[in-house]
Write a protein that binds this DNA or RNA. Structure first.
Lengths: 159, 159
DNA sequence: CATGATCGTTAGCAATGCTAACGATCGATC
DNA sequence: GATCGATCGTTAGCATTGCTAACGATCATG
């Protein structure tokens, strides 16, 4: 049993520079950063920049949508998204079609090439994670599986 | 016991677009992305950009070092790091001193202000992670603790 | 059908990534 | 001790990505 209180505990008056509020949260934070730093390295092989890959990911996994919706999903301005999409259209990863119900709007869709590139990139990333997991014992993998499910549940609303 | 083989298993001939090599690795990948996406939001309060915060983090947690070493740690060119450091010096977060042993080199150190800003930012991030963890049961927290330790061990060499 | 709201684009700015070129210094070799 | 290639950090110039502001076109409300 840990000494951590259940309540969210505000930073305990003063927060003497260097204090760690929740050791588990701090460790998880560090591990997540290191894991993704490791994983990002394989993205180079896709030939697409990180923002473009991320946009493509929304279209492939989330389906076609308007530019505004895409900008909101990526937490980016419509102006920035317009430029990203233009680049992805020019490179053949995305198709831009007029919205039949609203002449102001466009519908963005991943092309076959876009899907192919994104899925290959994701497979490389997952493989990189799997490589890290190779050193885990069966028991550790079970713990990780439970932990991942719990975190997935808590983060359900994100993206 | 899972059916997953222990060997690193190459992408099983063909890799029919969409296949997931290792479901646990894939889930962990997704959770890590969502967690950090959530956490990054609080960085705005520091007044520093993501690259500058990251540089400061290396200096605060890793100690003073040369520009070249800093560039290597951040996987960035020396030219880019030079510019980042210049900005951090101007804003008073970093001190640039000549290396007593090598007149070509400089030593970069976080100032008291830099340490203060970084530690406050990190506390906010950890608090954001802790908030996500509030919904976990005690058993889930124990699983997460074991999993985090195991991953920390496997990622020891990174950053 | 007039008018304000919304959608997407363009223009112009700042920050961050790169490579190339450079000056200064180091270290090894003669 | 002089020379010469290697290394350190900076600057210049380019592309990309983020922003806000301004705009034209279209929608939806009255």
């Amino acid at each position: 049993m840990t000494t951590t209180s259940r309540t969210s505990r505000p930073p305990a008056r003063g927060t003497p520079a260097g204090a760690v509020g929740d050791p588990l949260a701090a460790a998880l934070h560090t591990v997540a950063i290191r894991l993704l730093r490791q994983v990002r390295a394989v993205d180079r092989a896709s030939g697409l920049s990180a923002p473009r890959l991320s946009v493509l990911s929304v279209l492939v996994f989330g389906g076609p949508r308007s530019l505004g919706a895409l900008a909101a999903a990526e937490q980016v301005s419509a102006a920035t998204m317009s430029r990203l999409v233009t680049a992805l259209v020019r490179s053949g990863h995305v198709r831009r079609t007029p919205d039949p119900d609203d002449a102001r709007a466009v519908v963005l869709t991943a092309t076959a090439k876009g899907r192919r590139v994104l899925l290959a990139g994701r497979a490389r990333r997952v493989q990189a994670v799997a490589t890290v997991l190779e050193g885990l014992s069966a028991a550790e993998r079970r713990s990780l599986d439970r932990a991942t499910r719990a975190l997935s549940r808590e983060l359900a609303g994100v993206r």
